[in-house]
Simulated assay, not measured.
Amino acid sequence: MVFAIFLTAAIIVIFAAIQLNKYGDVINQKSTWNGAMVGTFLIGGATSLPELTTSLTAVYIDNPDIAVGNMLGSNVFNILILMAFDFIYRQRKVFNQIEVSSHLPIANTGFAMTGLLVVAILWDHSPSFLSVGGEMYLLIFIYLIVMKKLDGEEEEVEQTSSLSLKQGIFRFTLAALTVFIAGSVLTITGDMIAQQTGMNASFVGSFLIAASTSLPELVTVLAAFQMMKYSLAIGSILGSNIFNLQLLVVTDIFYREASILNASSTSNLTTALLGLAMMALTIYILLRPSVKRMITYALPSAATIILYFIASYVMF
């Protein structure tokens, strides 16, 4: 019965995520926001809703390892999704076709935030205020500063949709609510299935549940690649990652026993370091000059995929 509910929720999430991407593109066409901004704020935020529900559920059952592992693991899996599609579509040389300046600040922010979490995990009994870790206040500060400086310049977008901006926003909101509800069911049943296997909480949170909650990002990026909306795809992944770290702040606020990173095990360090390494490779791809040879172009994405599976094997 649990497996049937899980599969049903997964199908609903896939359908809703496709609609999310579709109406996000309508907002991109009809508003002054460019593809990177729509992907970063709207789609990135909406596809992060299942992660929030999962982590808050983990807090409710007093399992900080799943809460922390889910957020860090989702970020790692999100980068894996982007790099996997970049490798599959390597002949298109996707990163050569985008406006780097729109995405680099978000990528750098994700790297800095993840690095801050690595330090906090390594720092035994790091400082906290009102049972919220000091690093969480810094995460909020970094997020607000970078978001304020983001340039939301208009870009030329082909008008292909007959829907109005108001219709696009309304349908986008409905799709986001569907992702939230079905994604919540998906993660709760996924957690139940995982518990039956007897795996440790950090691995379950970082890889199994994280993969489940990243299903909307997977479908969103696939749809964006098929529509050749590469800026939207990259923006949704990078935006979802920094949004997830803000949701970790929310999770820490609701976890009243102590700072959630102090309460969780150091086994989450592996996932955090993996995320840092994968973000570094992403930044390298954004910064490097345009590459013509397909093999040379695909090397960083291939290295990222290999790194993920090595880390998964080590943690398992």
Rank of each mutant, 00 (worst) to 15 (best):
T197V: 13
I14C: 12
S102W: 00
F180W: 13
R92P: 01
S206D: 14
L80W: 03
T282M: 11
S267R: 11
M278S: 07
N268G: 10
S236Q: 07
I181S: 09
N244W: 07
I18N: 07
I81D: 03
A10S: 15
A272Y: 02
Q167M: 12
F309T: 11
L286M: 13
T220P: 01
T173E: 07
G45S: 15
K22D: 12
G152D: 07
S240R: 03
A201G: 02
G134M: 08
I305W: 01
L299G: 03
V68K: 03
I253F: 12
E99W: 00
E99V: 08
L247D: 07
M113Y: 04
F316Q: 10
S301D: 09
L174Y: 14
P64F: 12
Q91S: 15
V38L: 04
D252K: 00
T187M: 08
N63G: 08
S301R: 00
I61E: 11
A223N: 08
G69N: 04
A258N: 15
N28C: 14
L245A: 10
E217G: 10
L165R: 12
L165N: 07
T114R: 02
G205M: 05
D151P: 06
G45W: 09
I237L: 05
L174C: 15
F77C: 05
V119T: 08
T296P: 00
T57S: 12
L238H: 07
I209N: 02
N244R: 05
Q246G: 13
F243R: 04
A67C: 07
I237C: 00
S48T: 08
A277T: 09
S74C: 11
A201N: 11
E51D: 10
V221C: 05
S102Q: 12
E135Q: 11
G44Q: 00
A311R: 00
A58Y: 00
R293F: 10
M71R: 06
M37A: 13
T187N: 11
F85T: 02
S264P: 09
L218N: 06
L56Q: 03
A58S: 14
L222Y: 09
G35E: 04
P64V: 13
S131N: 15
K149Q: 13
M1P: 11
V221Q: 01
L287M: 14
Y60H: 14
V314M: 13
G133R: 01
N244S: 11
N108Q: 12
G275Q: 05
E156I: 06
D65I: 06
S101H: 13
V204E: 04
I61C: 10
A277F: 09
L186S: 06
Y255G: 06
A194E: 05
M1T: 09
A272E: 05
L232R: 00
D86S: 14
I169L: 15
E155S: 09
S202D: 12
V94A: 08
N63M: 06
T57A: 13
I142A: 00
L222Q: 00
G152Y: 07
E155T: 08
I79Q: 10
M228Q: 15
T173I: 15
L56R: 01
T266W: 02
E51P: 03
T54N: 06
L186W: 02
M315L: 14
Q97D: 13
I145S: 10
S128E: 14
L232Q: 04
G239R: 06
G45L: 08
R256E: 11
L56F: 08
S74Y: 01
T213F: 10
I260K: 04
R288C: 12
L49P: 00
I98V: 15
I283Y: 06
M71Q: 13
E257A: 14
T266Q: 12
